[in-house]
Amino acid sequence: MHRTPSLKDKLTRWLPRIVLSPSLVVVFVGVYLFIAWTAGISLSSSKMVPRFDFVGLEQYARLWATPRWETAVANLFIFTVLFLAITIALGLFIAILLDQQVRAEGFLRAVYLYPMALSFIVTGTAWKWILNPELGVQKVVNELGWTGFVFDWITRPEYAIYCVVIAAVWQSTGFAMAIFLAGLRGIDTSIIKAAQIEGATLPRIYMSIIVPMLRPAFLSVVVLLSYISIKSFDLVLALTGGGPGSATEMPSTFMFSATFKRNQMGIGAASAMMMLMTVAAIIVPYLYSELKENRNAH
């Protein structure tokens, strides 16, 4: 006999939906609705104010014909490659060192993870002081007696992008280290012991056995760091402001300048959509592989 649901049963079923509904509404309006709005603006002739006409891909054609956008894309490529390579290498190296059960491991983990607690605005401002020739490293070294030492990368267009890389690596290495260390701690130690019995050295064990087993950790780090590099707006704004000139211009700073400084809302929206498509090209395959792996596991 079918039992009529009681008030308690109805509350148990509907209460989670009621509690989550405000968050879902905020996400829908603040994320998906604005994505749709930005996509519409990128297909219009909007400049200072939004226009709701349709000009097709005209704004995208104008975007890719803009030299400053090409500079931003080139800078993003340089920054992303160096940022990922250095951060992953340092993070993995530190994780392997900490995996050796060193003394004060908890303290060292906290030290390496501390930069992640800072915002990119704070990081950019701090490194702006450190790299300033009149305040930071160059001045300190000169005052110690090495008067010929010069470290003025932040003021030189050909080197300024590497200053952004330095600051980003400093902040994100601890994050990569934590992911790799978690992966290392999840590996059965009997594998290492068996390899040592066979005569393999510890470096050989890590390079040939342990590191290949960290594929899920590598994939997670690459995806998340790629996302960080693509949306690197606050770090660049605080550290260099996109300069000198356009030497450290990024797609994110280009979008901000085009929309709010140069009254080119349509081009700004088009650049935002290009960034969204780049992020989607990274995130969607990752999510697909994770879902496929979970289905295969079940």
Rank of each mutant, 00 (worst) to 15 (best):
E105A: 09
A117R: 05
L20S: 06
V111F: 15
S6A: 08
K8N: 02
Y114N: 07
L11W: 14
Y60L: 07
L33V: 11
L11P: 01
F54P: 00
A61W: 14
Y112H: 09
V81Q: 09
F54S: 01
A95G: 09
Y32L: 12
F79K: 01
W37H: 12
V73P: 03
I94E: 12
Q100K: 14
L33F: 14
A61F: 13
F93T: 14
Q100A: 12
M116Y: 15
A117I: 10
P22R: 13
S42F: 02
L63S: 04
F77H: 01
A89H: 01
V55S: 04
A61M: 03
L97I: 10
F79G: 00
L63F: 08
Q100G: 03
G106P: 00
E58P: 01
L15T: 05
A39E: 09
Y32V: 02
T80M: 01
Y114K: 00
L11R: 11
S119D: 08
S23D: 01
L98V: 10
A104E: 04
F93R: 07
L90K: 11
L108D: 06
V27R: 01
P16M: 08
L82D: 02
Q100H: 09
L84T: 01
L118P: 05
Y112Q: 02
S44Y: 13
V73A: 15
L20R: 06
L20D: 04
M48I: 05
T71W: 15
K47D: 07
L63C: 06
Q59E: 15
F52S: 00
A36R: 13
V55K: 08
R68P: 02
F34R: 11
S45P: 02
L76M: 12
P115Q: 10
A36Q: 12
S119V: 08
K10L: 13
W64Q: 08
Y114Q: 07
G106E: 06
P115L: 07
V81S: 03
L97F: 13
S44T: 13
S44F: 14
Y114A: 07
L11K: 08
D9Q: 15
I121G: 03
S21L: 07
S45V: 10
I41S: 10
G91I: 11
G91H: 14
T87V: 07
F107C: 00
T71Y: 15
P115C: 09
V55A: 03
M116R: 11
Y114E: 05
T38M: 12
P67Y: 01
L7Y: 02
L7G: 00
N75A: 00
L98K: 11
Y60P: 00
M48E: 03
A61I: 09
P16G: 05
Q101V: 09
W64P: 02
S119T: 13
F52G: 00
W64V: 08
R13D: 06
V27C: 05
F28Y: 01
D9K: 12
Y60S: 04
T80P: 00
M116F: 10
S119M: 10
L33Q: 11
A72F: 14
G106S: 04
V73G: 04
V73N: 06
S6F: 13
A65R: 13
S23Q: 05
A89E: 04
Y112T: 01
T12N: 10
K47W: 06
S6M: 10
L43Y: 10
L7F: 02
D99I: 04
L84I: 05
P22Q: 12
Q59S: 12
L57C: 02
Q59N: 12
M116L: 15
L43G: 03
F34Q: 06
G30H: 07
A72C: 10
L118V: 06
L98Q: 12
I78K: 09
